[in-house]
Each structure stands twice: as C-alpha cells, then as structure tokens.
Design a protein around this nucleic acid. Sequence first.
DNA 1: GAAAAATACTTCAACCTTGAAAGTTTATGC
DNA 2: GCATAAACTTTCAAGGTTGAAGTATTTTTC
Lengths: 154, 154
Amino acid sequence: MDAMTPPLVAHKDRLRLWIRLLRAARVVEGELRERLKTQFEMTLPRFDVMSALYRERDGMLMSDLSRFLLVSNGNVTGIVDRLVSDGFVVRSNREGDRRTSIVRLTEAGEIRFAEMASAHENWIEELLKDISEEDARRLSSMLKAFRSNWEAEH
Amino acid sequence: MDAMTPPLVAHKDRLRLWIRLLRAARVVEGELRERLKTQFEMTLPRFDVMSALYRERDGMLMSDLSRFLLVSNGNVTGIVDRLVSDGFVVRSNREGDRRTSIVRLTEAGEIRFAEMASAHENWIEELLKDISEEDARRLSSMLKAFRSNWEAEH
DNA sequence: GAAAAATACTTCAACCTTGAAAGTTTATGC
DNA sequence: GCATAAACTTTCAAGGTTGAAGTATTTTTC
C-alpha cells in the first residue's frame, strides 16, 4: 500500500453531520411528541403555534405564523382551526384590512401553554443532559450563524 | 441592583440549542424536499427508504426499516407500497417465516438512487458550506456521543 | 402438542404537510 | 376611477405520520 494513499471518501464530514443531526432531532422530537400527547393531550404542531402566539401576545397574522414556523400557509390554517375548536385560540377581525385576521391565544390558551412550556423546558434539559452547557452554547451560536447566513442568502 | 443577582433565566442553553437545531433542520430539510421533488420526482421519505436499502443490498425486513428510520411500522408499509408501484422496490417471500418479507431495491431502484445520492451529497455540501469542516467534525462526534448515550438508556 | 405469548406486518382514523389553485381584499399604475 | 397587480387566506388532493387495533404466523411454555 502507498503510504500517501488519500482517503477514499474525503469531504463527507458535512454529510455525516447532517445525517446525525437529523437523527438526533427525530429522537428528541418523537419523545416530545409522545409526552405532549400523554401528559397534555396536545400535538407538537399545535404546541408550536401556541408557543409563537405566547411570545406575541398582541397576536399574529396567519402569514406571520407561517413564516415564523417555517411551514406552509395551508398548514397553519388547519392547525389554527383545531386550536380554535379546542378553545385555545381566537381569530379577531382587523380594522382596515378584511383579508386578514389576528390570531391570539385565549386566556385558557395562555394558562395551558404556560403549564406545557414549563414541562417542555424540563424535558429538553433532561433529554439533552448529555450535552454540556459549554457545548450547548458553542453549538447554539454555530447554528445561529448558520441561520443568519441562510437568511442573508434567501 | 444587587451585584450578586443571579441571572433571571439560567440554564436555558439547551433549550435555545434545541430550538435552533430544529429550525436549522427544517430549513435544510425543506430545501432537500423541494429539490428531490423538482429534479427527481421523489419524496424525502421514499428517498430515506431507498437510502437504507442501498446500504443493505441483501434487503431488509419492514421492521428493520422502521427501526432504522425511526418511524412507525404502519408508516413504512405505506411508503414501501408506493415504492413498489414506482418500480424501485420489491418484496420477496422469505423461506421459513411467512410473517415477513424481504424488501430490496430493484435494479431500476439502485440506478435511480445512485443518481439521487450523488446530487444529494452535493446539496448537503452546498447547504452546510457555512459550517467549517472542523466544526462539522466536532459537532458530528458530539451528536454521535449523544445518540450512543440515548441508545444505551433506551 | 395445545395454549399462550411473542413477533411481524397491515389497516385504519386522525392529524400533519405541501404545493397548487382559487377566493377575497387591498394597493398600484395610468 | 378602473384595470391590474399584489397580498392574504382558504381549499383541496396527494402523501406522510402516528398509535391503536386487527390478522397471521412463529415461538415458548407446560
């Protein structure tokens, strides 16, 4: 064998990273989905919408939700519909623009989300406990930079 | 203000990491989905199944696929059904156990996957280009450790 | 070897998701 | 002002996803 033989599979580091990242995300997401369902009778997509609305107490447009959550418009329509019939969310008309309506949490929605958010935070701490806080911070800022670059390009 | 006042929001590093990781994964996944669709008329779940079968040329059981891809059994049934009608996959009976069948790529499936895999690898390189190879390796091994710990505990 | 348990898979209802098409309303150009 | 474009949302079909229930087969237990 030639001592100078180059590696047969070079520059695959990013591909491997992507695969592992995806699998880790799936594992954690599956666990969260299950706990939300059993402990709060809640789905992950609905939790995500409520989370966005909890940050924006004055409400959001459907398109705001769609953009923020990175999902399609039609998708948000269905999820909000179900949250409305759950009694956690309301659509209210907006003065001066009859195309849009503002989506807000109801009081029941705020109370329920606060409960879930508290549990959710603990679950994440538990599920990611094997990642040191140091690593978490470094990785987190790496991902922030990644996202910033992405936003700048798209 | 008390100089010793502790941070109001401590130990949120992992939560922030999780949120950013999820968003990054969604951005990349959305891009991959769109490219697979427009350039290969292929969905991401079907690509994932073909990818698993390409690694295991002798074929896999449905339950192997389910376990490997981290999705439910019923889900795999549907995706494989569609891949069979696409002509990319076959189910063949297995001697000695009539509960199971071996799922394999057809020759057309192997050829098609090889084309897609090549493009896919380039896409990942492109999409993750802002992550240095050094960072990619470090993060990758961090995620590997995370997954190993997870497996050990579950 | 019959009964019970375990294994492998499919079916199904409910929900999530996308992308395209269509509806409504508002803004723009002339 | 009127036509056109743009913006915002919903609808719909096709597909993905889960978890529970059901079917079939094999293995285990006694």
